[in-house]
Design a protein around this nucleic acid. Structure first.
Lengths: 124, 124
DNA sequence: TATAGTGTAATAGTAAAATATAACACTAGG
DNA sequence: CCTAGTGTTATATTTTACTATTACACTATA
C-alpha cells in the first residue's frame, strides 16, 4: 500500500480499515488479519498498526480479544453511522475548500458533473 | 490561523497563500506581507514561512526581490491554471475517496446536492 | 503441558517538521 | 553613510511519527 507522505501513516491505516469494513471486505464479527500480518502486508511497523487499531477500538469499530484477535463490531448501526459520517466528511471538505476559492454552490455541482463526465470520456 | 495537526504547517501556509491569490486578496504584482510579519500573523516561525514561500517561488507563483519583498506573479495565465488545478484536485479527492467507499457516480452527485440543500436549511 | 498464534507494551534509535536565535545580503530613504 | 526594512541562510533544540527489537499476557490445540 502506498502512503501519502503528508499524512501520518497510522491515520491512513485507520481509514483503510474503515473502508474495508464499509465495503464489506470485513463483515460484522469478522476477525481482522493479525497485527503482525497487517504490519507485513502494509510494510509498516507493528506499533504503527497498533496505534491505528487502538483508535478503532476506542471508537468501538473493532473489539480486541486478547490471544484471539481483533474483530469487527457486530453492531451494524455503528457501521452504518460510520459510513454516513465518512461520506459527509468528504462532502464537507470539498464544499469548504471550494468555497474558500470563491466557488459558488451551483458551480461546485456543475464542476463535479463536468469532472465525472470527463472521466467517462477518457475511459472510452 | 488554525492548523490541521495531520498536515505539515508549511504546506497549509502554501495553500493559504494560493487562496489569497486566487480570490484576489493578493492581486498580480502585489507585494506579500514581509516574511517576519507573516510569521507573526500566522503565529509560526520565519523558517516555516520561508519554506512555504520557497515552494511558491519554485512554482513561479510569487517572485522574490531581495531587499524588497515577495511579489505575486504578473502572469495571470499562471494564476488561472493554478485555480483550475486546485479545483480539479479537490474534485478528484472527493471522487476517489467516495469510490473507495463504493459510492457510485450518480450517488456522489445526489449526495452533494443533498448536502448543499441541507446546509441551506440550517441557515434559515 | 508445551507450543504456536494472538494482542499489548516498553525501550531505544532515526527522521522530519517546527522552533528559537542569530547572522548575512540587499534596498530605499534620510 | 547610516539605518530600517526586506529576503536568505545556518545552527541547535524540541517534538512527533515511525522503526527495530524485545518482552509479556492470553488462547487454543496437539
Amino acid at each position: 500500500m502506498k502512503f501519502d507522505d503528508k499524512i501520518p501513516i497510522y491515520y491512513q491505516i485507520k481509514n483503510y480499515i474503515y473502508r474495508e469494513i464499509i465495503v464489506g471486505k470485513l463483515a460484522p464479527g469478522d476477525k481482522l488479519p493479525a497485527v503482525r500480518q497487517l504490519a507485513v502486508d502494509l510494510t509498516v511497523n507493528v506499533n504503527t498498526v497498533q496505534r491505528a487499531l487502538g483508535e478503532l477500538i476506542s471508537e468501538k469499530i473493532i473489539e480486541p480479544q486478547r490471544g484471539k484477535g481483533n474483530f469487527v463490531t457486530e453492531d451494524r448501526d455503528t457501521i452504518g453511522k460510520l459510513k454516513k459520517m465518512l461520506i459527509t466528511e468528504q462532502l464537507q471538505d470539498l464544499y469548504e475548500n471550494l468555497h474558500k476559492l470563491n466557488v459558488s454552490d451551483e458551480e461546485i455541482v456543475s464542476y463535479l458533473e463536468n469532472y465525472i463526465n470527463e472521466r467517462k470520456q477518457v475511459q472510452l
